[in-house]
Protein backbone atom coordinates (compact mmCIF):
# COMPACT_ATOMS: atom_id res chain seq x y z
CA UNK A 1 0.00 0.00 0.00
CA UNK A 2 1.36 3.33 -0.98
CA UNK A 3 0.82 6.16 1.37
CA UNK A 4 -1.05 8.97 -0.32
CA UNK A 5 -0.60 12.48 0.83
CA UNK A 6 -3.54 14.79 0.29
CA UNK A 7 -2.84 18.49 0.06
CA UNK A 8 -5.47 20.76 1.47
CA UNK A 9 -4.31 23.64 -0.62
CA UNK A 10 -5.14 23.70 -4.32
CA UNK A 11 -2.18 25.63 -5.69
CA UNK A 12 0.59 24.18 -3.54
CA UNK A 13 0.98 20.80 -5.30
CA UNK A 14 1.25 22.49 -8.70
CA UNK A 15 3.71 25.02 -7.34
CA UNK A 16 5.85 22.21 -5.97
CA UNK A 17 5.80 20.36 -9.28
CA UNK A 18 6.35 23.47 -11.40
CA UNK A 19 10.19 23.51 -11.44
CA UNK A 20 10.42 19.89 -12.58
CA UNK A 21 7.68 20.34 -15.17
CA UNK A 22 9.32 23.53 -16.43
CA UNK A 23 12.68 21.83 -16.85
CA UNK A 24 11.08 18.88 -18.60
CA UNK A 25 9.21 21.14 -20.98
CA UNK A 26 12.13 23.42 -21.81
CA UNK A 27 14.80 20.77 -22.17
CA UNK A 28 12.89 17.69 -23.29
CA UNK A 29 9.37 18.21 -24.58
CA UNK A 30 10.04 21.39 -26.55
CA UNK A 31 13.19 20.18 -28.41
CA UNK A 32 11.64 16.78 -28.98
CA UNK A 33 8.51 18.26 -30.52
CA UNK A 34 10.69 20.63 -32.57
CA UNK A 35 12.52 17.58 -33.89
CA UNK A 36 9.25 15.81 -34.62
CA UNK A 37 8.02 18.86 -36.53
CA UNK A 38 11.30 19.45 -38.31
CA UNK A 39 11.37 15.84 -39.46
CA UNK A 40 8.36 16.65 -41.64
CA UNK A 41 10.00 19.66 -43.30
CA UNK A 42 12.55 20.16 -46.04
CA UNK A 43 14.63 23.29 -45.78
CA UNK A 44 17.14 24.70 -48.20
CA UNK A 45 20.73 25.03 -47.01
CA UNK A 46 20.42 28.73 -46.24
CA UNK A 47 17.15 28.39 -44.36
CA UNK A 48 15.37 30.73 -46.77
CA UNK A 49 12.54 28.42 -47.76
CA UNK A 50 10.80 25.62 -45.94
CA UNK A 51 8.41 23.07 -47.31
CA UNK A 52 6.08 20.69 -45.49
CA UNK A 53 6.55 17.24 -47.00
CA UNK A 54 4.88 14.80 -44.59
CA UNK A 55 7.02 11.64 -44.29
CA UNK A 56 9.25 12.14 -47.31
CA UNK A 57 12.34 12.49 -45.08
CA UNK A 58 11.67 9.07 -43.58
CA UNK A 59 11.02 7.31 -46.86
CA UNK A 60 14.23 8.77 -48.23
CA UNK A 61 16.13 7.42 -45.23
CA UNK A 62 14.87 3.91 -45.82
CA UNK A 63 16.21 3.97 -49.35
CA UNK A 64 19.46 5.63 -48.37
CA UNK A 65 22.27 3.08 -48.43
CA UNK A 66 24.43 5.33 -46.27
CA UNK A 67 21.74 5.28 -43.64
CA UNK A 68 21.51 1.49 -43.74
CA UNK A 69 25.30 1.35 -43.51
CA UNK A 70 25.16 3.63 -40.50
CA UNK A 71 22.56 1.37 -38.90
CA UNK A 72 24.76 -1.68 -39.40
CA UNK A 73 27.80 0.15 -38.08
CA UNK A 74 25.82 1.14 -34.99
CA UNK A 75 24.64 -2.40 -34.34
CA UNK A 76 28.15 -3.83 -34.65
CA UNK A 77 29.63 -1.01 -32.63
CA UNK A 78 27.12 -1.13 -29.77
CA UNK A 79 27.07 -4.91 -29.54
CA UNK A 80 30.86 -5.10 -29.49
CA UNK A 81 31.19 -2.21 -27.06
CA UNK A 82 28.60 -3.61 -24.66
CA UNK A 83 30.16 -7.08 -24.81
CA UNK A 84 33.72 -5.85 -24.36
CA UNK A 85 32.88 -3.37 -21.61
CA UNK A 86 30.76 -5.86 -19.71
CA UNK A 87 33.02 -8.87 -19.97
CA UNK A 88 36.11 -6.88 -19.00
CA UNK A 89 34.22 -5.31 -16.10
CA UNK A 90 32.93 -8.69 -14.91
CA UNK A 91 36.42 -10.13 -15.00
CA UNK A 92 37.79 -7.21 -13.00
CA UNK A 93 34.89 -7.36 -10.54
CA UNK A 94 35.43 -11.07 -9.91
CA UNK A 95 39.12 -10.37 -9.25
CA UNK A 96 38.35 -7.39 -7.01
CA UNK A 97 35.77 -9.40 -5.09
CA UNK A 98 38.43 -11.98 -4.28
CA UNK A 99 41.21 -9.79 -2.95
CA UNK A 100 41.20 -8.43 0.58
CA UNK A 101 44.40 -6.41 0.83
CA UNK A 102 44.39 -3.05 -0.94
CA UNK A 103 40.86 -3.64 -2.22
CA UNK A 104 39.83 -0.01 -1.74
CA UNK A 105 42.78 1.37 -3.69
CA UNK A 106 42.21 -1.08 -6.47
CA UNK A 107 38.53 -0.22 -6.71
CA UNK A 108 39.23 3.52 -6.66
CA UNK A 109 41.70 3.24 -9.50
CA UNK A 110 39.24 1.23 -11.56
CA UNK A 111 36.63 3.94 -11.24
CA UNK A 112 38.80 6.69 -12.67
CA UNK A 113 38.10 6.16 -16.40
CA UNK A 114 34.46 6.99 -15.74
CA UNK A 115 35.46 10.53 -14.82
CA UNK A 116 37.20 11.11 -18.15
CA UNK A 117 35.21 13.09 -20.71
CA UNK A 118 34.35 11.13 -23.90
CA UNK A 119 36.31 13.46 -26.16
CA UNK A 120 39.37 13.23 -23.91
CA UNK A 121 39.08 9.45 -23.83
CA UNK A 122 38.88 9.49 -27.62
CA UNK A 123 41.98 11.65 -27.96
CA UNK A 124 43.83 9.46 -25.48
CA UNK A 125 43.23 6.32 -27.50
CA UNK A 126 43.79 8.23 -30.73
CA UNK A 127 47.30 9.06 -29.47
CA UNK A 128 47.96 5.49 -28.42
CA UNK A 129 46.92 4.11 -31.79
CA UNK A 130 48.10 6.97 -33.97
CA UNK A 131 49.76 5.25 -36.98
CA UNK A 132 52.78 7.58 -36.93
CA UNK A 133 53.36 8.37 -33.24
CA UNK A 134 51.19 5.91 -31.26
CA UNK A 135 52.76 3.47 -28.81
CA UNK A 136 50.11 0.80 -29.36
CA UNK A 137 50.39 1.14 -33.13
CA UNK A 138 54.17 0.81 -32.82
CA UNK A 139 53.87 -2.36 -30.73
CA UNK A 140 51.40 -3.83 -33.20
CA UNK A 141 53.82 -3.10 -36.00
CA UNK A 142 56.55 -4.95 -34.09
CA UNK A 143 54.27 -7.96 -34.06
CA UNK A 144 53.80 -7.60 -37.79
CA UNK A 145 50.40 -5.90 -37.89
CA UNK A 146 50.30 -2.69 -39.88
CA UNK A 147 47.79 -0.68 -37.86
CA UNK A 148 46.28 2.30 -39.62
CA UNK A 149 42.82 3.39 -38.60
CA UNK A 150 42.90 6.36 -40.94
CA UNK A 151 42.86 4.02 -43.93
CA UNK A 152 41.45 0.74 -42.65
CA UNK A 153 37.75 0.74 -41.66
CA UNK A 154 38.18 -2.35 -39.46
CA UNK A 155 41.01 -0.76 -37.51
CA UNK A 156 38.97 2.39 -37.06
CA UNK A 157 36.02 0.40 -35.77
CA UNK A 158 38.24 -1.46 -33.30
CA UNK A 159 39.67 1.85 -32.12
CA UNK A 160 36.31 3.40 -31.27
CA UNK A 161 35.05 0.17 -29.73
CA UNK A 162 38.09 -0.03 -27.45
CA UNK A 163 37.87 3.64 -26.51
CA UNK A 164 34.12 3.49 -25.85
CA UNK A 165 34.31 0.22 -23.90
CA UNK A 166 37.26 1.44 -21.82
CA UNK A 167 35.23 4.38 -20.60
CA UNK A 168 32.26 2.23 -19.67
CA UNK A 169 34.17 -0.48 -17.81
CA UNK A 170 34.23 1.51 -14.56
CA UNK A 171 30.48 1.89 -14.46
CA UNK A 172 29.89 -1.79 -15.20
CA UNK A 173 32.57 -2.77 -12.71
CA UNK A 174 30.79 -0.95 -9.88
CA UNK A 175 27.49 -2.67 -10.58
CA UNK A 176 29.02 -6.10 -11.04
CA UNK A 177 31.02 -5.75 -7.85
CA UNK A 178 27.91 -4.75 -5.91
CA UNK A 179 26.06 -7.67 -7.49
CA UNK A 180 28.82 -10.11 -6.56
CA UNK A 181 28.94 -8.88 -3.00
CA UNK A 182 25.21 -9.37 -2.68
CA UNK A 183 25.56 -13.10 -3.35
CA UNK A 184 25.70 -14.88 0.02
CA UNK A 185 29.09 -16.46 0.61
CA UNK A 186 27.46 -19.59 1.95
CA UNK A 187 26.04 -20.33 -1.53
CA UNK A 188 29.55 -20.49 -2.94
CA UNK A 189 30.68 -22.62 -0.02
CA UNK A 190 27.73 -24.95 -0.46
CA UNK A 191 28.63 -25.30 -4.13
CA UNK A 192 32.26 -26.00 -3.19
CA UNK A 193 31.13 -28.78 -0.86
CA UNK A 194 28.81 -29.99 -3.61
CA UNK A 195 31.89 -30.63 -5.70
CA UNK A 196 31.75 -27.75 -8.18
CA UNK A 197 35.09 -26.44 -9.46
CA UNK A 198 35.67 -22.68 -9.23
CA UNK A 199 34.87 -22.31 -12.93
CA UNK A 200 31.71 -24.36 -12.60
CA UNK A 201 30.68 -22.43 -9.47
CA UNK A 202 30.96 -19.24 -11.48
CA UNK A 203 28.89 -20.40 -14.43
CA UNK A 204 26.22 -22.37 -12.56
CA UNK A 205 25.78 -20.26 -9.41
CA UNK A 206 27.35 -16.80 -9.62
CA UNK A 207 26.54 -15.90 -13.21
CA UNK A 208 22.86 -16.88 -13.06
CA UNK A 209 22.47 -14.96 -9.81
CA UNK A 210 24.06 -11.92 -11.45
CA UNK A 211 21.61 -12.01 -14.36
CA UNK A 212 19.46 -9.09 -13.12
CA UNK A 213 22.59 -6.93 -12.95
CA UNK A 214 23.79 -8.21 -16.31
CA UNK A 215 20.51 -7.43 -18.00
CA UNK A 216 20.34 -3.97 -16.51
CA UNK A 217 23.88 -3.25 -17.64
CA UNK A 218 23.19 -4.61 -21.12
CA UNK A 219 20.46 -2.04 -21.64
CA UNK A 220 22.52 0.75 -20.12
CA UNK A 221 25.55 -0.15 -22.25
CA UNK A 222 23.58 -0.32 -25.47
CA UNK A 223 22.03 3.05 -24.75
CA UNK A 224 25.50 4.38 -23.96
CA UNK A 225 26.96 3.03 -27.20
CA UNK A 226 24.06 4.47 -29.19
CA UNK A 227 23.94 7.94 -27.71
CA UNK A 228 26.91 8.86 -25.54
CA UNK A 229 29.75 8.00 -27.85
CA UNK A 230 29.54 10.98 -30.18
CA UNK A 231 32.57 12.60 -28.52
CA UNK A 232 34.71 9.53 -28.97
CA UNK A 233 33.87 9.16 -32.64
CA UNK A 234 34.27 12.84 -33.33
CA UNK A 235 37.68 13.02 -31.64
CA UNK A 236 39.15 9.88 -33.22
CA UNK A 237 37.74 8.97 -36.63
CA UNK A 238 35.05 11.56 -37.41
CA UNK A 239 33.01 8.71 -38.81
CA UNK A 240 35.66 7.69 -41.32
CA UNK A 241 37.37 6.24 -43.18
CA UNK A 242 34.70 6.06 -45.84
CA UNK A 243 31.89 6.17 -43.24
CA UNK A 244 33.14 2.92 -41.67
CA UNK A 245 32.59 4.30 -38.17
CA UNK A 246 29.65 6.59 -38.82
CA UNK A 247 27.28 5.56 -36.06
CA UNK A 248 23.72 6.88 -36.18
CA UNK A 249 24.24 9.68 -33.66
CA UNK A 250 27.28 10.84 -35.59
CA UNK A 251 25.32 10.80 -38.83
CA UNK A 252 22.61 12.98 -37.24
CA UNK A 253 25.28 15.55 -36.44
CA UNK A 254 27.01 15.22 -39.80
CA UNK A 255 23.86 15.48 -41.91
CA UNK A 256 22.38 18.25 -39.84
CA UNK A 257 25.26 20.52 -39.00
CA UNK A 258 27.80 19.74 -41.70
CA UNK A 259 25.59 18.87 -44.66
CA UNK A 260 22.82 21.18 -43.40
CA UNK A 261 20.05 18.72 -44.25
CA UNK A 262 18.01 19.67 -41.18
CA UNK A 263 14.88 17.74 -42.14
CA UNK A 264 16.72 14.47 -42.80
CA UNK A 265 18.76 14.91 -39.66
CA UNK A 266 15.62 15.51 -37.61
CA UNK A 267 14.01 12.41 -39.10
CA UNK A 268 17.04 10.35 -38.01
CA UNK A 269 16.87 11.72 -34.49
CA UNK A 270 13.18 10.81 -34.35
CA UNK A 271 14.13 7.22 -35.20
CA UNK A 272 16.79 7.28 -32.48
CA UNK A 273 14.16 8.61 -30.12
CA UNK A 274 11.95 5.63 -30.90
CA UNK A 275 14.87 3.26 -30.28
CA UNK A 276 15.64 4.74 -26.89
CA UNK A 277 11.94 4.66 -25.95
CA UNK A 278 11.82 0.97 -26.84
CA UNK A 279 14.94 0.21 -24.81
CA UNK A 280 13.56 2.10 -21.84
CA UNK A 281 10.27 0.24 -22.00
CA UNK A 282 12.12 -3.07 -22.18
CA UNK A 283 14.19 -2.09 -19.21
CA UNK A 284 11.21 -0.99 -17.14
CA UNK A 285 9.20 -4.05 -18.02
CA UNK A 286 11.91 -6.49 -17.04
CA UNK A 287 14.03 -4.68 -14.52
CA UNK A 288 11.26 -3.13 -12.50
CA UNK A 289 9.58 -6.49 -12.33
CA UNK A 290 12.88 -7.55 -10.83
CA UNK A 291 14.19 -10.93 -11.76
CA UNK A 292 13.57 -12.16 -8.27
CA UNK A 293 14.50 -15.47 -6.77
Amino acid sequence: MKKRIVFNHRVLPYALLAPQILITIVFFIWPASQALYQALLIQDAFGLSTQFVWFENFSELIDDEFYLNSFQVTVVFSAATAFLAMSAALLLAVMADRIIKGATGYKTLLIWPYAVAPAVAGVLWWFLFNPSIGVAAYILRVFGYDWNHTLDGGDAMILIIVAAAWKQISYNFLFFLAGLQAIPKSLIEAAAIDGASPRKRFWTIVFPLLSPTTFFLLVVNVVYAFFDTFGIVHATTSGGPAKATEIMVYKVFNDGFVALDLGGSAAQSVILMLIVITLTVVQFRYIERRVEY
Partner: peptide, 26 residues
Protein backbone atom coordinates in the same frame (compact mmCIF):
# COMPACT_ATOMS: atom_id res chain seq x y z
CA UNK B 1 31.02 -34.48 3.90
CA UNK B 2 27.74 -32.62 3.54
CA UNK B 3 26.85 -29.44 5.32
CA UNK B 4 23.57 -27.78 6.28
CA UNK B 5 24.00 -24.04 6.57
CA UNK B 6 22.32 -21.67 8.98
CA UNK B 7 20.71 -19.68 6.15
CA UNK B 8 20.16 -22.96 4.22
CA UNK B 9 22.28 -21.68 1.29
CA UNK B 10 19.82 -23.05 -1.26
CA UNK B 11 20.55 -22.10 -4.86
CA UNK B 12 17.72 -19.60 -5.48
CA UNK B 13 17.62 -20.02 -9.25
CA UNK B 14 17.21 -23.79 -9.16
CA UNK B 15 14.21 -25.93 -8.37
CA UNK B 16 14.14 -28.10 -5.27
CA UNK B 17 15.04 -31.10 -7.43
CA UNK B 18 18.00 -29.31 -9.00
CA UNK B 19 19.15 -28.10 -5.61
CA UNK B 20 19.33 -31.65 -4.38
CA UNK B 21 20.75 -33.02 -7.63
CA UNK B 22 23.47 -30.36 -8.03
CA UNK B 23 26.08 -32.17 -5.94
CA UNK B 24 25.38 -35.49 -7.65
CA UNK B 25 25.55 -33.97 -11.13
CA UNK B 26 28.91 -32.43 -10.30
Amino acid sequence: IAMVFQNYALYPHMTVFDNMAYGLRN
